[in-house]
Nucleic acid binder design. Structure first.
Lengths: 247, 247
DNA sequence: CGGCCTTTTGAATGTCTTCAAAGTGCGTGG
DNA sequence: CCACGCACTTTGAAGACATTCAAAAGGCCG
């Protein structure tokens, strides 16, 4: 877990504490599951659609996507999974996965099974962490709805703006980006898969945003130079919404 | 609750029992909440995005859509809500709604707050119903993923086929449709809103399906004349998947 | 019958995809 | 150090799919 892309313990507890106040016991539990991680090369299937979930894991470093593979060989992405996000988190025993989770970059994950069972067994002593985990799942759902809006109602430029703002907010939230720049390991083709666009059109769309001075994208990093204009273009405050309890 | 479109008690308990075996106590509880319903005209907002949920309700008759209103006046539909579906079902106190639910047709709903609190308080005595409710929410999530696939990867004919099959399966599952026909109260414009297409293009798409003898659509009813071919066209077995436990 | 909503049709336009090829950057091995 | 290979980016041109605008036709209810 030495990658520069790995979430720090502070950022992880910070993110969850922002969702619901954590007790010292909660923090200790989080610390304990971070002890040993597993590495997965790009393309690794972290969770297979239709199969029973072995146990929840925490993504610590790298990027993955949550997607469905279609019978005709196509695939559709529902959301990105970033450091600090859980994979296969579910309160019922051995649930079956509705979607696959696949590593895009090299990825590090930790077993979160112990965390889940401790919280479940702990009752009130882990009420804060329980609440934080539930809210975290809620946000996953919210991001899928954002994706529906992108795919259903937005053109290429709008999708790109909305998606870049989402990434910006999420990565800053876990301390992996700052005001200046964020890591951006996606190829233009991969970006097209996420946004439901061809790689060629992603290229032209990015050129527009660059020409207008809103975005810089090079060397594995992205800079949002004009967030206000991007927000205007994106058309909905996908990521400006408070991280609040939500159906 | 006299509408011909209302779900019967048998169908409702049947649907939930298919998700998880219900006890007699579960069935009595379901019966009790069906006693009095409220009527809402088309366009009624049953649940408002961003607002705290007053309490869960059960849709008994009529159709609604779960959607988001965008700042620019556009709207995006995430899923249809049909008789037997819950609205605002959530295990946490006073959650905030991520999406609005709006009546398309005249609608009847029942308060399901008592059901939720009884199940929560009842512990093991309502384990079956608890499981059924949780799975029901899971299926709502699954249908949103189906919608993402439609919007992201399918053309007009494919979307239409996939959507009609979904409706067919869901309505038959609650006894509101049979092998022959299903009620179909949506105008072509409304259908376009659901599928992310213009009303005009919905019209042309339907003509294709009718000309090919796959669908009949008139007088508020739809007939799927060639389900096999529709399944082939739809490209993914959205609704043929077993209603199983799933992430 | 008249009004209103819905469906149908035509034509022009727009956005994105596809195919093909050229250009760029970077690491590996000679 | 240079040459090569490979993946990614960029560019052009043609075509597919869906939208928009406008108008005509159909159906239902007062």
């Amino acid at each position: 877990m030495s990658s520069g892309r790995a979430i720090s313990l502070e950022s992880l507890t910070g993110r969850l504490d922002g969702l619901a106040p954590l007790s010292p016991k909660d923090r200790a539990l989080i610390t304990s599951i971070l002890r040993d991680g597993a590495s997965h090369p790009p393309g690794s299937v972290l969770l297979q659609q239709g199969q029973a979930v072995a146990g929840p894991r925490l993504l610590v470093a790298g990027w993955a996507w949550r997607m469905r593979s279609l019978p005709n060989g196509q695939r559709q992405v529902f959301a990105l999974v970033l450091p600090g996000d859980f994979i296969g988190l579910c309160w019922r025993p051995r649930p079956r996965a509705l979607s696959s989770t696949v590593a895009i970059t090299p990825v590090t994950t930790c077993d979160a099974g112990a965390l889940l069972s401790e919280v479940r067994a702990g009752g009130d002593s882990h009420a804060g962490l329980y609440e934080a985990l539930t809210l975290s799942s809620r946000h996953d759902e919210m991001r899928v709805l954002d994706q529906v809006v992108r795919l259903g109602r937005q053109n290429a430029v709008e999708r790109m703006a909305s998606f870049l703002l989402e990434l910006d907010q999420r990565l800053r939230n876990v301390g992996l980006a700052d005001d200046q720049a964020m890591p951006f390991p996606l190829s233009q083709d991969a970006l097209g898969v996420v946004l439901g666009l061809s790689g060629v059109h992603v290229n032209r769309t990015l050129q527009t945003l660059k020409r207008e001075g809103m975005v810089e994208l090079a060397g594995g990093f992205a800079r949002l130079l004009d967030r206000d204009r991007l927000r205007t273009i994106s058309g909905f405050e996908a990521m400006a919404r408070p991280y609040a309890d939500a159906i």
